[in-house]
Nucleic acid binder design. Structure first.
Lengths: 154, 154
DNA sequence: ATTTATGCAAATCGTTTGCAAACCT
DNA sequence: AGGTTTGCAAACGATTTGCATAAAT
């Protein structure tokens, strides 16, 4: 399990792994769900429901809303909060890629992925230990959001 | 300007400073706006619009939605994205307190404030320089969100 | 074959907007 | 007084839900 855990799995594994995760939750890997996973995998950044529907026009909106819930419960997708009111979704780090953070545009709401450095992660983990005690929370993860204006909005 | 910048201003200044910021944007510090600022100042965490309306039942919802926009434009309030779809609002750091981060509950969406350490901030600032170049963003700030389950949801 | 997911259309709910009355300076 | 803000009610738009059909194992 050494090196495999930290790196992105080969693309061919993606759907097979998604199917397994769904099966483990008593759910099927249907066409609509596969389509959604494919869209999210192809996106270079977390996608809104609207973006998913545009990328995959045959999907019904209601089905997509229902499936995002199912995929989240199965640990395939996570929700990312951006600057605006729209939820954004991406494949979980465990499923599709390494740990990363986000850069959010205050003007248009666009969210891009950004890699974190080892030193930053180390500092984060140090601080997290302290903060979880202070807040009485059981901390399960962290999310760093850089805020600014994207290239098109500058 | 050394020490004053980093610490929270005395409470008595709050409304006076809010009034100045609004005036600088050609806006008035009305009763409804003062009420909203007071609610946010009293809250130990970023508040949803619903929470503001509960805390200040005389406020009309429409007015509150309009005022949150005005207060944001004046630099009095910022929007915080939590785990759920509801926007949360708090007084800006410059107005009401020192730089801090948030701890979000994955179960109930509650967001608490958490102080950051100097070493973490240093690491953040280092990384930010790199990331802003890579992403082509003009970075104006950062936000660290720790994710977990709050004391009541554990 | 049987259970589960889908799609359409209607219902829901948070948020926004039009407009007349109340407010502030 | 004069322009702005407020509050109500209606409009809006994203998300959710009911139910009959289609798909999956």
């Amino acid at each position: 399990m050494g090196t495999t855990t930290a790196s992105a799995p080969p693309d061919g594994d993606l759907h097979a792994r998604a199917a397994m995760l769904l099966a483990a939750h008593g759910q099927k890997y249907t066409t609509a769900r596969r389509a959604m996973v494919a869209v999210l995998a192809a996106m270079p950044h977390p996608a809104t429901i609207a973006e998913v529907l545009i990328a995959s026009p045959d999907l019904a909106a209601s089905t997509t809303y229902r499936n995002v819930t199912v995929l989240r419960e199965a640990g395939i997708v996570t929700r990312v909060s951006g600057a605006d009111e729209f939820g954004r979704f991406e494949l979980t780090e465990e499923l599709a890629g390494p740990h990363h953070h986000h850069v959010t545009c205050t003007n248009c709401g666009l969210v891009l992925d950004a890699q974190s450095s080892a030193s930053l992660e180390a500092a984060l983990n140090d601080s997290i230990r302290d903060l979880m005690k202070a807040a009485g929370y059981e901390i399960t993860g962290h999310r760093l959001e850089l805020v600014g204006r994207c290239a098109s909005c500058r």
